[in-house]
Design a protein around this nucleic acid. Structure first.
Lengths: 149, 149
DNA sequence: TTTTAAATTTATAATGATTATAAATTTATT
DNA sequence: AATAAATTTATAATCATTATAAATTTAAAA
């Protein structure tokens, strides 16, 4: 329990970010929830525990985490920016029906990108869209229901 | 010349979109410029030729093009949405220095995505960031200059 | 052709995420 | 304890996007 706080604190200190309570809580939210949250989602949950919390602090903290590569933006086409503290190589899949964003392992380096040999590549993102198994099931079940009628 | 207009018009008609002058012009802008423009960039250029043009029309037209898969959003983390009329499989590379978005060929199906075998995949996006050759050159040249001093 | 209806475009207001600014608070330093 | 620096907070400003309704254009009917 306290062990976790200390780990998060250490992560911040390693990047020369002072581990304030607010910053630890934002990072904790990201790392434990792993739900690719919006600023609002982070704020609305944390403000319960930190009633004085300001949305500006959430924005500021996320900017800090981004700068030091402790978090990154989930690049999907949405009106609200979403964040991810998992900075290892993995893909994102957004279900067009329920909106949930799934992580999936993907070895991006499998892609041959000869045409970029003169480019310096710093980040690689893979993003798929479609329908998740849960929603596919729901569609099937509804079909069955209609059959019965 | 007129041939091009007719081709664009046909593309729209095929998708049951009435080929109004404004719609043809937006589609023409996207297909000829191929510059992943923002709504503002499209509007600012087209309003020269169509002084009565409204930004709402550009938004409406882009929504139509998206619905019928004649265009798609470039999924990169930016405050303004960017659009692309090239809906074939290809990746996007954004230079962090000059901001230019490059297309690059990529065979996304090379990626093994076993964990998504129960997902229905409708769209696949690949997005890289880094520094483009032009900007890399500029950096090198500046280094040389400083050496000379 | 004239009239009517439907579709499209336009102008404008509203929304809402993000950014900017400055004051208040907390933390660290002298 | 006093001062300075960093952080947080509250608030206002910005700006892309969406919503709404009026104006215009296009298509259809009489």
């Amino acid at each position: 329990m306290n062990q976790k706080i200390e780990n998060l604190s250490k992560k911040l200190v390693e990047k020369n970010i002072k581990p304030s309570f607010q910053r630890i809580k934002v990072l904790e939210y990201l790392t434990t929830k792993r739900n690719h949250p919006t600023v609002d989602e982070i704020f609305n949950e944390l403000v319960i525990e930190i009633p004085t919390l300001s949305k500006a602090t959430v924005y500021n903290t996320l900017d800090l985490l981004m700068e030091s590569k402790l978090a990154r933006i989930v690049t999907i086409e949405e009106n609200e920016t979403r964040y991810d503290a998992d900075v290892t190589n993995h893909g994102h899949f957004k279900c067009d029906l329920c909106g949930v964003i799934y992580d999936f392992p993907v070895n991006i380096d499998d892609l041959s990108t000869d045409s970029l040999k003169n480019f310096k590549i710093n980040e690689k993102n893979v993003y798929f869209q479609g329908i998740c198994p849960k929603c596919l099931d729901n569609i099937d079940n509804n079909k069955d229901k209609n059959k019965g009628k």
